[in-house]
């Protein structure tokens, strides 16, 4: 399934957050959205998934939804959004319970996604017993359980320490190698963007507009952290963002 953003603009009361965003998210590609803080990239992600309605423009979905897909547009949140009163398996089960599945089918899906995210040993654990990285793995397992057509990831690694982030990034790469999922990935971390993004969309500070779209052809599995080509791209992205970030930093938040 492809997503097409057409002339998206958005206001909160008087404040213009996004201006005329045109973007295609194509099947099997990871599109990274980067920009200075407060540029509306998380808002854009909420608009893409239908959690908010844009003031202008529209988000279109085209093409077939994959077979067995229960929730085409599925989020992974920065704060994991796990229910603390449910165990790992019950947190995954939560998003399956509203669908017409037999208990056995549900159980099979849960076992499958927990095995794929290496969580099989932690089925009965409560979120408070897990580290941040494990919690985000649970959230990823939960997202995979509904067989999404597009994953919408809102700074999924930002709440983690840098070692855990590195490990989970490898997991996301491995997962993509296996299943070529489609994703929109919001981050403020340029290194994550060049490691994961097939296309990197640079947004300007508020009101967010697309400043540039950078395509990286290198296969994800070849992207080591010490790759000079990637470093050059990262430097270029930083030069693009530097002034925007400086200016955004000096703005008052509660305009």
């Amino acid at each position: 399934m492809d997503l097409n953003l057409r002339h998206i603009s958005h206001h909160y009361d008087e404040v213009e957050v996004l201006r005329d965003i045109n973007l295609d998210i194509r099947r099997g590609q990871i599109v990274c959205l980067i920009g200075p803080s407060g540029c509306g990239k998380s808002t854009l992600l909420r608009l893409i998934g239908g959690l908010e309605r844009p003031t202008g423009g529209e988000v279109l979905q085209s093409g077939e939804v994959p077979e067995g897909c229960l929730n085409p547009l599925t989020y992974i949140f920065q704060d994991f959004a796990l229910l603390p009163w449910r165990t790992v398996e019950a947190n995954v089960s939560l998003v399956l319970e509203d669908h017409d599945l037999s208990a056995a089918a549900r159980e099979a899906i849960i076992a499958d996604v927990l095995a794929r995210t290496k969580l099989a040993d932690f089925r009965k654990a409560y979120p408070r017993q897990l580290s941040g990285g494990m919690k985000q793995r649970v959230a990823i397992a939960r997202a995979l359980s509904v067989r999404p057509a597009v994953l919408l990831m809102d700074e999924p690694l930002s709440a983690l320490d840098s070692q855990t982030r590195e490990l989970l990034m490898d997991d996301l790469v491995d997962l993509w190698e296996k299943e070529q999922y489609t994703a929109a990935y919001v981050t403020h971390n340029l290194n994550e963007a060049v490691r994961l993004g097939h296309r990197i969309v640079v947004l300007s500070r508020r009101p967010g507009e697309i400043r540039e779209i950078v395509e990286i052809d290198m296969p994800l599995s070849d992207r080591r952290s010490d790759n000079s080509e990637l470093e050059a791209i990262q430097k270029r992205l930083w030069n693009l963002m530097r002034e925007e970030a400086l200016a955004a930093d000096r703005e008052l938040l509660d305009v």
Partner: peptide, 21 residues
């Protein structure tokens, strides 16, 4: 936590499920 409610909505949970669970 509003984020938990938003999570429920993003997975297409019914209103009743969101209230109950």
């Amino acid at each position: 936590d509003r984020n938990l409610i938003r999570m429920g909505q993003s997975f297409g949970l019914s209103k009743l499920s969101i209230i109950r669970k």
